[in-house]
Simulated scan of single mutants.
Amino acid sequence: MMFKQEWSDVKTDQGDLVLEALQQRFQQNTHRHPGVDWAHVHARLQNNPEKLKALHAMEATGGEPDVIGTADAAGTCVFCDCAAESPQGRRSLCFDAAAWNARKQNKPENNAEDVAAAMGISLLTEDQYRTLQQFGEFDRKTSSWVATPPEIRQLGGALFCDRRYGRVFVYHNGAESYYAARGFRGSVSV
């Protein structure tokens, strides 16, 4: 299984460009992170180069990551893909390696779980997806795989979400399926 990993090694100048993009998006979308200061986010990123690498991967694949709040009293910042549609560079993937291996014909390039792991991010859960939707209308034309409970996955299914008719919907599909308009959104905590 192959996947383009032009984002795998972040050079210093690339890290600076990613930080600039993150800061600009952060400042343009303050409604996503009320009470969170950029200096706090910047300091956390400077102390976590692996997380900056993951954010670079999110940015390079079209995710437009932004802070959507903090996760705990210590001020852990939660970044999430905030692109209007499922990230372009992460579409046409089946759900996981087992689904990819089960396909006998027309295999996609890779699968969402392995790509997320390679990027250093996690697929959004259904709850995280619903939280993201509080900050805008995402996936109005696309859909995104989400983390799937083991009991559903054991039966061959996987979950995906989208937004239609002003509502968030959760659906199921065979985990081996893939579509040009379905990708995945991820998150990383710093």
Rank of each mutant, 00 (worst) to 15 (best):
E85L: 04
A43Y: 01
Q88G: 07
A99W: 10
A116M: 11
K11Y: 09
A117S: 12
A112F: 08
H42G: 00
A73D: 13
Q105I: 06
N101G: 05
A116T: 10
K53I: 00
D162I: 01
G35P: 11
A84T: 12
Q105P: 00
A39T: 13
C80K: 00
G69P: 05
G157H: 08
Q23T: 04
V146S: 05
A84G: 05
G166N: 11
M2E: 12
P49R: 06
E137L: 06
Y178F: 15
V146P: 08
V170Y: 02
D72S: 02
N47K: 14
A21I: 02
K51M: 03
P65I: 02
G15E: 10
Q27E: 15
E85H: 03
K141S: 12
F160K: 02
L22D: 08
L132H: 02
T148M: 05
C82V: 12
H56T: 06
H33P: 07
R185P: 11
D81R: 04
V36A: 09
L123Q: 10
A117F: 03
A117Y: 05
Y171D: 10
E59I: 00
A102Y: 06
R153P: 01
P149E: 11
L155H: 09
Y129R: 04
C80D: 02
G156T: 05
Q88L: 12
M58N: 02
Y171V: 00
L123W: 07
F95D: 12
V36F: 07
N47A: 15
G183I: 10
T76E: 06
F138N: 03
V190C: 15
Q46T: 09
V67P: 01
L123C: 07
V115I: 13
Q154V: 02
H172P: 00
S86L: 04
E137F: 01
A175D: 12
K4C: 07
V67R: 01
Y171M: 09
D37Y: 08
L45A: 04
G174R: 13
Y165M: 09
Q24T: 14
F169P: 00
A175W: 09
A98K: 15
R153H: 07
E137Y: 00
E113Q: 14
N101D: 15
F184G: 10
K53T: 13
V18Q: 06
P65Q: 05
K104W: 03
K107Q: 14
E137C: 03
H33T: 05
K51I: 10
Q28E: 15
